[in-house]
Design a protein around this nucleic acid. Structure first.
Length: 876
RNA sequence: GCCCCGGUGGCGAAAUCCGGUAGACGCAGCAGACUUAAAAUCUGCUGGCCGUAAGGCCGUGCCGGUUCAAAUCCGGCCCGGGGCACCA
């Protein structure tokens, strides 16, 4: 071996070996336990970023570890290749999204290969390939046949200047990002997937996901948001009835859903969404109200905006009747009620709901108390709002229901409503159906044809896939597909007359909802999936960013259940174990000129200076000039903040192993990781120390085997350190998934080997064993250098194929233990006792310790707590 | 605003299921060795305060509680991050 560690050469030769040996090509082998290790596939944005490196290194460590444990491992990779950034790049550079995307894939694939991941590239998929997305289309048609896919109107952001639909991220402060025009809401027909039909199962099955982080399950449960309550109909008063009729609509009642039917007698107003039919009917005869409705419709639909905006409302002048008292209740239009939620209408009970309280106070609406607290702490709900107004209690002033407990009242009121035909108990989910239509080009075409004579006609299976033309370049004004007659001008498959092809494409979450199934059948051109999914699924370990905790994971779970119900797969849950890795953060530096835009500076170009305890930061610009900048704290690495670190330059400077080691060592995988250049150098230094230690050891020639019966105390100590280290590394990687502590354990072992200076045959034998354990233990994390070091240690077999070693229990055995002694819970001394010492002798030894005696003084111990193998606490 | 997570030395962190020696391991810093010199490398020290030392006191975001014993459990608060349905 070379004396110096040269990462480039080491990595080239290790990668060449894996390629030639096809080390990571997976084949189905029922005789071996399988391990399907999957990392979330990347969006091909152009270059890998550090989040990818972290994600894929975690997956790779687990993959290589499982391989060495004898599992049949599949670790595939692919590309989430449809999406908005390709269209944005097209607009900026005039390149077709297809070319941009494929060039990016080619480049990023090289980057992934340079990092030495144990990937089976023979199963690679890209969602923009017709051979992939044809199955989106095929399954969509199956869902449509089953009624799971259906059409209804949905609200979108409309840019009136570009005449185009905008994504939420393209709307900045209510204006289009390119045109600056005020964005309008528009209702258009869209296709939806009936995920709410699976809501109960998606919620219930969470409890079977033992290998998922609790917090992710909790987030999903909250998202699904099952609530038990009642649906209540408020009959329309004559004014409302006639207004609706005038608007050409029919209706007898205003329906709401509430979890607090017990507060029904406290209703003093009704609030409806601006898009509610009753609101539109009222607006038609009231210009002022219509203006307010228009204003609401311009507002954001994003939950965060709706929740934080000022709650505004206007009276409609129309009324509904209370289902029990028959008293008229006025209907208001409110900007915080959304048409897409529940019934698009809520009953207003200001005394017992904070939002209603705020609304009523502002608009001079009555507040009627109908619940009293058990502790009698208040009688009447009055300003300011108190949290306990919303609690359950005893019902008052509610007719026949007065005196009931809230819980009992909910049931009794629902039952009474049921009898009157004005309501019933109902379960409501917060979860809404999944709208998959996108008025965009770079996505999977929806396989439908609109015919004047036959209506909506599915593209026949044998004509799939509907291929997306790849030569279009979006310009920001509308969907290019709509301007391409060669795409949309088709003959109706049913009647043969001229018809129009659907030009909307699918949400890219569709693409990523089943790619993990396709890897198992990637080469099958005849079917979406085949029997090989039975062998590989479920995924044994899924790894991805915490930012996907809800949407992607929920959609994938839903899609898998649909495919199961269609008989295509046998599993109901796709991911048995989930690891959500934290984000990669870096410092943010910016400069805000008196006029103009804030500019961000890359941390690499910023120096810190400290004068008189005051820190200042200076950026060096491309022309060499310096500028004082602000430090804005830590944030996720992003282009917009210019605080990304390019993995490529890191690999070129230090090698892939250093990049991998730093990522694994700097923080446990689930936590955020702060970038540190010094930390990277430290990782590199450690690899070099390991290299030097092995070099010095093997330079003295081959070592003899260990003779366990012929070891002196120091040799036994090193063996114990080695096997303790192995125990820890095995547990940390295999069970705890804390790679940072696994690395620390190997570092400790290497420190012990370095201190150990014994050139005797048994000394060298023990050193050899310790170095082998260090190299094996580190090999899943830094596979290239370990490949080389393993050879240098005298082995023929490549380390990638070596079995993970077992711990030698004999090496761990010890004769004596050190216990700590506390007096009143404070550490006062240490005692050494035999491993098998009984409690009485430990007690005696503790009381005999000089320092302990000093602290006990004349007092008699009241209590002595002995925790075996750990400590003694003397209480005086 | 709502849901979820986190907060421990100058810094990243460790203390594992189920409360038991707080700060493993690394970075940065300081001192020393090697060198003509520098870099690299190696060795030692490194939570704060008091003390020549032995040793003592304080210390895990803040306030309070449970316990022989709390970073860990409970209640309340402050701060930071993630998600909120068309970014992926």
């Amino acid at each position: 071996m070379d004396e110096r560690y040269e990462p480039a050469a080491v990595e080239r030769s290790a990668q060449q070996y894996w390629n030639e040996a096809r080390s990571f090509a997976a084949t189905e082998d029922p005789s071996k336990g399988k391990f399907y290790c999957l990392s979330m596939f990347p969006y091909p944005s152009g270059r890998l970023h550090m989040g990818h490196v972290r994600n894929y290194t975690i997956g790779d460590v687990l993959t290589r570890f499982a391989r060495m444990q004898g599992r049949n491992v599949l670790q595939p990779m692919g590309w989430d290749a449809f999406g908005l950034p390709a269209e944005n790049a097209a607009m900026a550079n005039g390149v077709a999204p297809a070319k941009w995307t494929r060039d990016n894939i080619a480049y990023m694939k090289k980057q992934l290969q340079a990092l030495g991941f144990a990937l089976d590239w023979e199963r690679e998929v890209a969602t923009c390939d017709p051979s992939y997305y044809r199955w989106n289309q095929w399954l969509f048609l199956r869902m449509r046949e089953k009624g799971i896919a259906y059409k209804k109107t949905g609200v979108v952001n409309w840019d009136p200047i570009d005449q185009t639909v905008l994504a939420n991220e393209q709307v900045i402060d209510g204006r289009g990002w390119r045109t600056g025009a005020l964005v309008e809401k528009r209702e258009i027909p869209m296709y939806y997937l009936n995920i709410t039909a699976y809501a109960d199962e998606l919620l219930g099955d969470l409890s079977s996901l033992g290998g998922w982080p609790e917090r992710v399950k909790l987030m999903q449960a909250n998202w699904i948001g099952r609530s038990e309550g009642a649906e209540i109909s408020f009959p329309l008063a004559d004014d409302a009835r006639s207004a609706l009729r005038a608007a050409g609509q029919a209706g007898d009642a205003l329906k709401v859903f509430t979890t607090r039917a017990d507060t029904l007698f406290g209703v003093t107003f009704m609030a409806i969404a601006a898009e509610h039919p009753l609101a539109l009917a009222a607006g038609a005869r009231n210009p002022e109200l219509q203006a307010f409705i228009d204003e609401c419709r311009r507002g954001s639909t994003m939950e965060a905006d709706v929740a934080t905006m000022e709650k505004k409302g206007r009276r409609t002048g129309l009324h509904v009747l209370h289902p029990f008292t028959g008293k008229p209740v006025e209907v208001w239009v409110a900007n915080y009620v959304l048409m897409g939620y529940g019934e698009g209408a809520v009953m207003g009970v200001p005394a017992h709901d904070e939002r209603d309280f705020e609304f009523a106070s502002k608009n001079g609406i009555d507040i009627v108390t109908v619940v009293r607290p058990h502790d009698g702490s208040w009688q009447k709900a009055e300003a300011p709002w108190q949290v306990s107004y919303g609690d359950y209690g005893v019902i008052v002033d509610s007719g026949e229901f007065s005196g009931l407990e809230s819980m009992a009242a909910v049931s009794a009121i629902a039952a009474a409503l049921d009898k009157k035909g004005l309501g019933r108990k109902r379960v409501q989910f917060r979860l809404r159906d999944w709208g998959i239509s996108r008025q965009r080009y770079w996505g999977c075409p929806i396989p439908l044809i609109h015919c004047e004579h036959c209506g909506e006609v599915p593209v026949p299976d044998e004509q799939l896939p509907v291929v997306l033309p790849e030569d279009l370049v979006p310009d920001g004004s509308g969907n290019p597909l709509g301007k391409t007659p060669s795409f949309w001008k088709v003959d109706c498959p049913t009647c043969g007359k001229p018809a129009r092809r659907e030009t909307d494409t699918m949400d890219t979450f569709v693409d990523s909802s089943w790619y993990f199934l396709r890897y198992a059948s990637a080469d099958n051109a005849k079917a979406m999936v085949d029997e090989r999914v039975k062998y590989w699924l479920p995924v044994d370990q899924y790894i991805g960013g915490i930012e996907h905790a809800i949407l992607h994971l929920l959609y994938s779970r839903f899609w898998t259940k649909v495919m199961r119900d269609l008989g295509l797969v046998t599993v109901g849950e796709p991911f048995a174990n989930l690891l959500t890795q934290g984000m990669v953060l870096n410092h943010i530096y910016s400069h805000q000129p008196a006029e103009g835009r804030r500019t961000y500076f890359n941390p690499l170009d910023v120096d810190e200076e400290e004068q008189n305890g005051v820190k200042r930061w200076y950026a060096t610009r491309a022309d060499g000039s310096r500028l004082e900048v602000n430090y804005d704290g830590l944030g996720t690495m992003s282009k917009s903040k210019n605080n990304g670190v390019d993995p490529q330059s890191l690999v070129e400077k230090y090698g892939a192993d250093t990049a991998r080691l730093f990522m694994m060592f700097a923080a446990p995988p689930e936590q955020t990781l702060e970038w540190s250049d010094e930390g990277v150098q430290g990782a590199f230094r450690f690899i070099r120390r390991l290299w030097t230690a092995v070099y010095q050891h093997v330079s003295a020639g081959p070592a003899a085997p260990v003779d366990k019966s012929a070891l002196n105390a120091a040799q036994k100590d090193l063996r114990r350190a080695a096997h303790q280290g192995l125990t820890k590394v095995t547990d940390d990687i295999g069970r705890r998934r804390t790679f940072n502590t696994a690395v620390a354990a190997v570092m400790e072992l290497l420190n012990a080997v370095s201190r150990f200076d014994d050139r005797s045959p048994q000394g060298r034998a023990v050193a050899q064993e310790a170095l082998e354990i260090a190299v094996i233990g580190l090999s899943p994390i830094v596979p290239h250098v370990c490949h080389e070091l393993w050879k240098a240690l005298g082995h023929r077999e490549a380390i990638v194929d070596v079995a993970w070693p077992t711990v030698d229990r004999d090496a761990l055995s010890q004769d004596a233990l050190t216990l700590v002694v506390q007096v009143n819970g404070k550490l006062r001394g240490q005692i050494t006792v035999a491993v098998d010492a009984d409690e009485a002798s430990i007690r005696a030894a503790a009381l005999a310790d000089e320092t302990v005696k000093r602290f006990i003084g004349d007092a008699t111990p009241k209590k002595i707590v002995v925790v075996l193998r750990k400590l003694v606490n003397v209480v005086v």
